[in-house]
Design a protein around this nucleic acid. Structure first.
Lengths: 216, 216
DNA sequence: TAGATTGTTAATCGATTAACAATC
DNA sequence: TAGATTGTTAATCGATTAACAATC
């Protein structure tokens, strides 16, 4: 099967679980075999759920998959999920906002290294530009279009101050970058052909509070 | 109706949307009226969805609610949602991990101020203890039990290094703190009576990558 | 072969949407 | 009253689970 063939649609819920399965598999040796039952217990998911999730792409991509009576080979399964998610390659990421948050993500964000490769950090504040962290020099946000034209930038993580987050994101999207991770508390708007995910600390705290009170 | 009466169960999806509605309402004047239609357009949700979400607690809590032909009063609706989420009061939060990430959240995390009140920041590293940020002094993680016994701590945000995240979380939960926001890449385990939410940057990037490739 | 576990189908469950009477 | 929009019911859609034949 050609990779160009359109994939069947996989639900958002399934995609979220795939990233969870991936993380779980990292604890095992590549040669191990793991059953859906075993994995389900570890992750608090039913075995049926797991097999169902896998079945949604078994028919699409010819690849090794579970062996009846034995389970799934860890390495095979891992690579298949990586494949589905499209993370079996190096993705170039930039951080936009070199304040404390951007800096924290760059230096102690535990970003998976060869998979997500941070190739630049940018800021709008003159006084920050030129400083170097971890061998990466802070550049001006106004340089993003130029840099994006020179090398493939797959994603941008927005860590700028809320007040200018929309403004810098506009520069990012105008530079042709198609994926944004928004870490500001502003509800950033992007053109329809750009995908965006939001990490909103306040909303998470609000949710957490509900579950806490409910549990009491 | 007493507040002690057990609430009907509201789905996780609905709770997530409630935090979204709250954020949306903040853009309006308290005296405004907003219709489900109007709000739906702003948020990319159907009007029916919104009314359905609201209806799940209309019958539970006697409060002002929508007016037919007119819509919902912003202030009323806002307060009702705050009430449901249990965030109509001050929640005391501690940050555990005074590295770059903890520091970033404390100083530029845009945490909603009176609602989530950061009352302490802790670290395990001797050299960091005693430093002061924003009027809050970094204390030793070993002081958490004592501090938690002196004042109500509603939540802890874990920003410690991955390698010791489980260890410090154990101290937190043993101190009687019942809600954890895990910002490390470690899958922290907590006792069954503690609620936990995870913010995992790598998993978010993986998801984002899938949607990006799918959109292409 | 016997035991284990897959892949898949059908049944169940839950969440979303459409439609509309109620009513401001 | 006429227009607008709610609150709710019933219909639809999608996701999860149970069950089991297939097969390693």
């Amino acid at each position: 099967m050609k990779t160009s063939e359109k994939k069947e649609k996989i639900s958002r819920k399934t995609i979220q679980r795939l990233t969870m399965y991936l993380k779980c598999l990292e604890k095992f040796s590549p040669d191990d075999y793991i059953s859906s039952e075993e994995m389900g217990v570890l992750l608090g998911v039913t075995a049926a759920q797991i097999r169902k999730d896998f079945s949604s792409f078994i028919t699409n991509i010819e690849t090794c998959i579970g062996i009846r009576g034995k389970g799934y080979n860890v390495k095979c399964l891992y690579e298949m999920i990586e494949n589905i998610l499209g993370i079996n390659k190096q993705n170039n990421v930039i951080i936009v906002g070199a304040g404390k948050l951007g800096n924290a993500i760059l230096l102690e964000g535990d970003i998976e290294k060869p998979r997500f490769n941070i190739v630049g950090i940018f800021d709008i504040t003159k006084s920050r530009i030129g400083k170097e962290y971890k061998g990466i020099k802070i550049s001006s946000v106004s340089d993003i279009p130029k840099i994006a034209s020179e090398q493939r930038i797959d994603m941008a993580i927005i860590t700028e101050n809320k007040s200018i987050a929309q403004q810098v994101t506009d520069i990012v999207t105008q530079s042709g970058i198609k994926a944004i991770l928004n870490m500001t508390s502003l509800e950033i708007k992007v053109p329809r052909d750009v995908v965006i995910e939001h990490i909103d600390l306040n909303r998470k705290l609000q949710e957490l509070n509900y579950w806490k009170e409910k549990a009491e």
